[in-house]
């Protein structure tokens, strides 16, 4: 695996996809290793229970494998994979009835209130990001999902557009509104 790892390390996702389809399906493991942690973190925003989130991620990779020959090469593989993860997370939310807890950090709101003037600054500060994750869960779902992808997953507008299948304009609008809502949420209802 180590020799193989070195051999395929520099290949792009899309190149590995081609190899998985044409040469060896075992190479799919490289893609899984590349994305398992990222997807676990992403799905974790929606499914706070680690084991359930891990199950969802596993399902995502299996679905992705089954549909690999239907992957649209005009898209980025990561966007395609995140799209599947997004759909699976929504299905899981419906199944598990997401439980969101904003408790557990007494300083959270006080810390947040000190920084509400500049939301970008909060996202940049590592120590506040964890707290902000909880705040984002208070947003309506369509704003929550763009904020998660943009700030926590650091996806571009184009990638978010492909993951959520909404226009670039809608991505921009939702991000701006979400930022305003986040500020309002904590200045009006601390």
């Amino acid at each position: 695996m180590n020799t193989k790892s070195r051999e395929y390390k520099n290949l792009s996702d899309e190149e590995i996809v081609k190899l998985v389809i044409s040469k060896d399906h075992n190479l799919y493991e490289f893609l899984v290793r590349r994305y398992q942690k990222k997807l676990l973190s992403y799905v974790g925003y929606y499914i706070p229970d680690y084991d359930k989130a891990a199950d969802v991620v596993q399902d995502v990779f299996i679905k992705s494998y089954i549909n690999l020959q239907g992957f649209n090469s005009h898209l980025k593989f990561s966007s395609w994979l995140y799209r599947i993860a997004h759909n699976e997370s929504i299905n899981a939310i419906k199944k598990y009835h997401r439980e969101v807890s904003l408790e557990g950090n007494e300083n959270f709101e006080a810390v947040f209130l000190d920084h509400t003037k500049n939301i970008e600054e909060i996202f940049e500060k590592k120590e506040l990001r964890e707290n902000l994750k909880r705040a984002v869960h208070r947003l309506p779902f369509k704003y929550e999902e763009v904020i998660i992808l943009y700030y926590f997953e650091e996806k571009s507008y184009e990638e978010i557009s492909d993951v959520l299948r909404i226009s670039l304009g809608a991505v921009g609008t939702r991000i701006n509104r979400a930022k305003k809502m986040l500020v309002e949420l904590y200045t009006q209802h601390p």
Partner: peptide, 30 residues
């Protein structure tokens, strides 16, 4: 506990590949 688990390197890859092998998961034809 969740944070501790998140910081561990998850090995989903192994279970995914095992499932593909054991359950003979096939890619859909073009």
């Amino acid at each position: 506990n969740k944070l501790i688990k998140e910081n561990l390197d998850p090995d989903i890859a192994e279970s995914v590949m095992q499932e593909i092998e054991q359950k003979h998961v096939k890619m859909r034809s073009p």
